[in-house]
């Protein structure tokens, strides 16, 4: 079985986000870009499944500008066998990405598609669900535990839901999206970085995959959240009560 994993290139989550002065988006020039942390978890899970002998190959896929290749190299250095880069320059929304994945799945025929539950840049949390819908595959989203049964071609997925865990059992092929506590991703070791250099990254354009990139959404403007006001030190309990009553209107 082959596993396909989505890896997205995003602004490193430790970077302080700055909104562009013209409010068209966030600043990405001279900003550290890294693999989306949920995608790292997705890739780690795929690698563990392969190492457990349940899969034969892990293919990492990234979509976006040419620099996505760097993110794919990281994926290859973690242990993915090969990679696919869908070269697209404009903005990509979840539905377009899902359609591109559908096309790639039809080409590559993986038995499992693993994605992060969401990307930390746009926080859409839609791609996994949409691609499952387009493919007509079952989906296990927000996975905190994944167990595969090779013989019966089944996946058992624990999902973290409000108030506890939900366990789903589904037939393969399936779509799984990963939550934070699923695993702890590995580091890229020097021997693996070396090996990654000779691994293949295949390039497609959306046209080659017969997907038209368009969106019904338009970003009007991006603004920073309002700045938190500095607190005040009150001098007495009475003043506090007065402020809570008359200024904050909470009591």
């Amino acid at each position: 079985m082959k596993i396909m994993v989505a890896v997205k290139r995003v602004i490193d989550y430790a970077v302080k986000i700055r909104v562009k002065p013209d409010k068209t988006g966030v600043e990405t020039q001279n900003v550290k870009m890294s693999m989306n942390p949920f995608c790292e978890i997705a890739l780690e899970e795929a690698l563990r499944i392969k190492e457990a002998g349940m899969a034969s190959e892990v293919v990492a896929v990234s979509m976006g500008p040419a620099q996505c290749v760097d993110t794919l190299r990281t994926g290859l250095a973690m242990g993915a066998d090969r990679a696919i880069h869908v070269d697209a320059t404009g903005p990509l929304y979840p539905l377009s990405v899902a359609k591109l994945f559908k096309a790639l799945v039809e080409l590559e025929k993986p038995g499992l598609l693993i994605l992060g539950k969401q990307a930390i840049d746009d926080d859409c949390n839609q791609t996994g669900q949409m691609v499952a819908g387009l493919l007509g595959w079952p989906q296990g989203t927000f996975a905190s535990k994944v167990v595969l049964d090779k013989e019966k071609q089944l996946a058992t997925v624990d999902r973290e839901v409000d108030g506890g865990l939900e366990t789903l059992c589904m037939d393969l092929p399936a779509v799984i999206t990963t939550d934070l506590r699923l695993n702890q991703p590995r580091y890229a070791t020097l021997p693996n970085i070396m090996k990654a250099k000779s691994k293949v990254i295949k390039k497609y354009t959306p046209q080659e995959l017969n997907v038209e990139i368009k969106s019904d959404l338009e970003v009007l403007q991006v603004t920073e959240p309002p700045k938190r006001k500095a607190g005040v030190i009150v001098s007495s309990v009475d003043e506090l009560i007065d402020k809570l009553k008359n200024e904050a209107h909470v009591i």
Binding site: A14, K32, P37, T74, Y187, T189
Partner: peptide, 9 residues
Amino acid sequence: DGVIAQDIN
């Protein structure tokens, strides 16, 4: 042996 950090984390 060695590892190279792939992100700030």
